[in-house]
Write a protein that binds this DNA or RNA. Structure first.
Length: 338
DNA sequence: CTCCCGCAGT
DNA sequence: ACTGCGGGAG
């Protein structure tokens, strides 16, 4: 899309701007703009409309954006928490094919769900456990019907503030503004007040920005912005960012973003070996200690530094996490998914 | 190497 | 407030 428009240029506040979207701005006057969110542009209606129009004009067509089923949405959110969306698509489709409803998932063996998770390289196997557990909660505590408010959704295992608002928004159009690392980056760059704050209150600003009662379209739109136009490497013009005329970063050229804690390297980490163990146990049902050890690392020697004692430690933690069961038969030690 | 739509346990 | 948790892709 050609955009052009030199941008920064006029910082003038005229505007009703682009759009003509169908969303009429905020219900007049009530929030008069920046009442509880100093630092937001005065013409909030234009800012909101520009983003929503931009999203509606063109956005990535992920399959979970075509459903309003809370369970399907939840599965997509949990999978997306740290896996690239393009990789989530096939896993999401396979998962729902295998367990189409919360009743199906709740009735499944956890070991099968964990094995699926590992087999689809979705990482963080605890999330499979959480999802299985959450399905059980929906069945037993809500009679199979998802709660519809963020507060209630947060009671589900593995569902925190972000996921609760995402599900409430995308399934029920009933959420508050989502705040994840993408949204934080957008807000930090766009609005100087956030950028300059010692301890930015993202939640308050995000909610002040969101048009009340339109969480579904809004949260989709602002996350799309963070993913497509305002990623770590900004693509303002290429993506025709709708906020260029208001954006502090675009006008100053300062595209710094909030620090995201960097993970310790994965290669050689204990997480890597946990992952290998779970993957192997998903393929072999049960394995004895030394066979498992030799299969997860070439330098495994029963009595060496990375030997039985080391492996017992990993398995013990996996057992504490409820992912693995350790059985002692005679002198043999056998592990299987739990 | 970094990045990717967080959360639970402590 | 801090820590641990997978693994593919760029």
């Amino acid at each position: 899309m050609t955009d052009s428009d030199a941008a920064a240029a006029d910082a003038s506040d005229d505007s009703e701007a682009a759009s003509g979207g169908d969303h009429e701005a905020d219900g007049g006057g009530t929030d008069g703009g920046s009442g509880d969110a100093p630092g937001l542009p005065a013409d909030l209606g234009a800012v909101r409309g520009a983003l929503v129009d931009w999203y509606e004009a063109d956005h990535r067509d992920f399959p979970w954006r075509r459903t309003e089923d809370a369970y399907e949405i939840l599965v997509s959110e949990v999978m997306s928490q740290q896996t690239q969306l393009d990789r989530v698509v096939p896993a999401w489709e396979d998962f729902l094919d295998e367990w189409p409803t919360t009743a199906d998932l709740a009735a499944a063996d956890r070991a099968d769900v964990v094995a699926f998770w590992s087999d689809h390289s979705l990482g963080y196997n605890n999330r499979a456990k959480y999802l299985h557990e959450a399905a059980g909660q929906v069945e037993s505590e809500y009679g199979g019907a998802f709660p519809e408010t963020p507060d209630e959704l947060q009671e589900l295992m593995g569902v925190g503030p972000y996921t609760a608002n995402a599900v409430a928004s995308f399934a029920f159009d009933n959420g508050d503004a989502v705040v994840d690392t993408n949204v934080k980056r957008v807000l930090y760059r766009a609005f100087a007040e956030i950028h300059n704050a010692d301890d930015p209150d993202y939640e308050t600003v995000a909610n002040a920005l969101m048009p009340a009662g339109e969480s579904r379209i809004w949260n989709n739109a602002i996350m799309e912005l963070g993913g497509v136009a305002c990623g770590k490497k900004p693509r303002c013009d290429e993506a025709s960012c709708p906020w260029r005329e208001w954006c502090h970063a675009y006008q100053t050229g300062d595209f710094t973003a909030p620090d995201v804690p960097t993970q310790p390297s994965f290669e050689g980490s204990r997480r890597q070996f946990r992952g290998r163990i779970v993957r192997l146990l998903g393929e072999h049902d049960e394995m004895d200690l030394d066979t498992l050890g030799h299969r997860i690392r070439v330098d495994y020697t029963p009595d060496g530094e990375h030997g039985r004692e080391w492996l017992r430690g990993l398995l013990s933690d996996l057992a504490d996490d409820g992912l693995v069961k350790i059985e002692e038969e005679d002198t043999q030690i056998i592990a299987r998914l739990q």
